[in-house]
Design a protein around this nucleic acid. Sequence first.
DNA 1: GTAAAAAATTAAGGTAGATTAATTTCTATC
DNA 2: GATAGAAATTAATCTACCTTAATTTTTTAC
Lengths: 193, 193
Amino acid sequence: MSFDLILKNVSRHIALTPAEEDIFISLLRTKEISRRDFLLRPGEISRCESFVSKGCLRMYHVDDKGVEHIVLFAVEEWWAGDMYSFLTQRPASLYIEALEDTQVLQIDKASLDRLYAEVPKFERFFRILLQNAFVAQQNRILQNLSFTAEERYREFMDKYPGVDQRVPQKMIAAYLGITPEFLSVLRKKRAGR
Amino acid sequence: MSFDLILKNVSRHIALTPAEEDIFISLLRTKEISRRDFLLRPGEISRCESFVSKGCLRMYHVDDKGVEHIVLFAVEEWWAGDMYSFLTQRPASLYIEALEDTQVLQIDKASLDRLYAEVPKFERFFRILLQNAFVAQQNRILQNLSFTAEERYREFMDKYPGVDQRVPQKMIAAYLGITPEFLSVLRKKRAGR
DNA sequence: GTAAAAAATTAAGGTAGATTAATTTCTATC
DNA sequence: GATAGAAATTAATCTACCTTAATTTTTTAC
């Protein structure tokens, strides 16, 4: 069933009764999006947070010079969303795009508030997710400051195994903060060993 | 009184009864640390999260080449802590150092767990803090990817007004991810306008 | 299955920011 | 208030990574 994955995921951090599971599931909406379609574009208001149950998303920003910078790849069991826009209900600055045909489970802001009210344990669940995301982001900041492009590439391959098989190389470059041309040079060097 | 600032801070996000305020305050410990002393060093286990009620801290990492990278400056009303170490109770990788004589209010892990149990509203409070920190970190990642050093410097000056008067310039460089020498060049260019 | 478009590779030349090192200015301590 | 150490500045040289552009390979769409 389509909700097994998310329930398994939730149960890693909090224990739910069957009744609580039902409340949770009743607040989720399933959405299918095809490759190259967008879940969100800059200027829109992010109405929900999305859990990937199948497929792959990327979340990215396009800067003033028109260059894309990837904030996150979200494969199965990851959450994606423009947190700023979702929390403030003000216009987003990020794109969220499907890189494969993708199925997501979405919860909108009103439903999430209801969920917190009816099953307060979920405050804890989302706090834990956030803590983990926070630590991961802090590591990324430190690595962007201290690592060379080559080291960041190695780290990416270690940390997101398999993702490089699912997304175009130029997007990995956009995640690492280098040009596709330079990533190609790094890969050549690596292959030689 | 020493707890006014933190109560004011908490009240921005959740409303507490006087009894709940008392519980919260009873779980805090005041600590004074002198300039150049450390709240935490790598290898130690981070036992608590610290709210700065007076003074200024920096949180930083020293990489393999011995170079310092600053994760955060924390002045009055900011929280500091090695989240990874605090959550997992495993060895920290960060230094937390006082840049001025500083007073912090600390809560240790056991007390925080008690707080969550006795005043569940605090789950929400720390979730909100985390959400804000998460958004700020995401912006920093994007800016590190898309901005030149000069743009990042301008952004820092805008976003942390006054901080540049309180911390040595070389630490601002260590926050921006550039050398002190190059920051000096940027400042000279800026002064010319 | 084929044409067109997109992605990846390669290579030459260029630049933002690093490195090194010398000099000046600031700040801490006795 | 003199002195030592730290911080900041300046300048010359160097390098990791970018830009541009041409070529090859892979993917997409009819």
